[in-house]
Computed example of a mutant assay.
Amino acid sequence: MRVLVTGSAGFIGAALTERLLARGDQVQGIDNHNDYYDPALKEARLARFAGHPNYTHARGDVADAVALNRLFRDFQPERVANLAAQAGVRYSLKNPQAYVQSNLVGFVNILEACRHNQVEHLVYASSSSVYGANRKLPFAVEDAVDHPVSLYAASKKANELMAHTYSHLYDLPTTGLRFFTVYGPWGRPDMSPILFADRITRGEPIDVFNHGNHSRDFTFVDDIVEGVIRTLDRVAQPDLNYDATQPNPGASSAPYRLYNIGNDQPVPLMRFIELMEHNLGRTVEKRLLPMQPGDVPDTWADVSALRRDVGYAPSTSIEEGVAKFVKWYREYHHITA
């Protein structure tokens, strides 16, 4: 297939691009290479496949409608995987405009381009953060998500609503994927795995919020990519059993679907830190701090809808995933001891 991947130099986007190329797809990537974190990491990810004969890269921003429309016209993608977004909950407290441009303006540009270029299926990244203040566990796509606790979460909920509008009005098949705490090789340096690894390696104290009482549904990046590919291949269809008098937020009478992608096995944060210490071969001081604004105490994905519709659910154990992450971290940073 001809697949457009936005955010193709990002953490998940680069991993997805590699997998698509490996199975023979022709991939057009686009990434703005911004400096939210060290752009050198994006360049290193991109270097893994930039010379592939079936890959073409564009340095551009999805918020630039003119450039994006030109890219769609030239490449004529059959499927689109939209992973470009301004990420991070805490950064949204400092720079909300970045989220408006990338996650709202950029997303409507993607929808318009898909609409006008006969794209067969749009798969886009949502987030477990949309569950916000919900306390019913596990989180299910059938749950209402009307109480976000960060602008990042609100922007992702907005993406889901915008996608449904285009599915309803223009019969554009769309599938939203709510990612749960993705980690693994080539991850973002603003996320806890690399932050923890950096400090543990240097023997510095680590900050542990909510006094260590968090739990997270940590999901290994390879499992996320497998879920993206399976949903990309399964074009969203209208739910023939949809009942408008008892609406299901995860489906519609339009060609629209939502899925959680998580491990369905929440892990206490302190256990995650313990595994990091074990694999890095040293222990460090933990500074127990209060809950951060915009954060939530626990996440846990109900993946029954994903399992039912595409026959897949993530399966990498936290022990296996952390070991693979630390192995990459040591190699990338040339750490031998």
Rank of each mutant, 00 (worst) to 15 (best):
Y332M: 07
P193N: 09
S155T: 12
S315F: 07
L20T: 04
S102H: 09
M162D: 08
D264A: 14
D64I: 00
Y99N: 04
V80E: 04
N213W: 03
G88P: 01
H147I: 04
A140Y: 03
F220K: 02
Q26T: 14
S102V: 01
N95I: 02
F107P: 02
Y242N: 08
F49R: 04
I229G: 10
V303R: 05
Y124D: 11
Y91C: 06
E226M: 06
K327S: 15
T165N: 14
D35K: 02
A244I: 03
A125Y: 10
M270F: 11
A254Y: 08
F72A: 05
G321C: 04
Q237S: 11
T299G: 08
N117K: 01
N263K: 05
A65D: 12
G106C: 09
S102E: 12
A85H: 01
I318W: 09
P268S: 07
R59S: 14
Y183K: 10
V208G: 11
F179W: 10
A305W: 03
R115I: 02
A22W: 12
Y131N: 11
D171I: 00
G227M: 08
H168M: 14
D217M: 01
D143I: 01
H214C: 00
F139N: 06
Q97D: 15
L21F: 11
A22K: 14
G212F: 06
A44T: 10
V5Q: 09
S150E: 08
A81S: 09
Y55R: 06
Y166R: 05
W300P: 00
R79Y: 13
D233F: 03
L111G: 09
V303C: 15
H278D: 12
N34M: 08
P77W: 06
A197H: 05
K157A: 13
A236T: 03
Q101N: 13
A254K: 03
Y312V: 00
E43S: 12
V5N: 10
V100E: 14
D295I: 11
